[in-house]
Amino acid sequence: MNRIDRLFSQDLKVINMGLESFSKDLKNQEVPVVQMDWRPRAGGNAKLGALLDKLKSNK
C-alpha cells in the first residue's frame, strides 16, 4: 500500500484553517475536526502588510 492510500485508511486527524464551512462539512460526516481561528496577516490588507514589513527591515 502506498503512503497516500495508508493515510486514507487511517482515522483522520484534521485541523482546518480558513473557511469554517470546510470543518462543518467534516463535522456533518462525524469526522473529528479542530477549527483554527486563523485569518491572513493584517486581514489580507497588502498596504498594512507592507507597513509591518518595513518595521522588520534593518534599514
Binding site: L51, L52, K54, K59
Partner: peptide, 19 residues
Amino acid sequence: FEDALEAFVDKMTSEGIIK
C-alpha cells in the same frame, strides 16, 4: 491602530531609520 501604524512608519522613514 491603522493610522498609528502608518504614522509610526512615516516617522521612522523621515528619521532615516527605514527606507
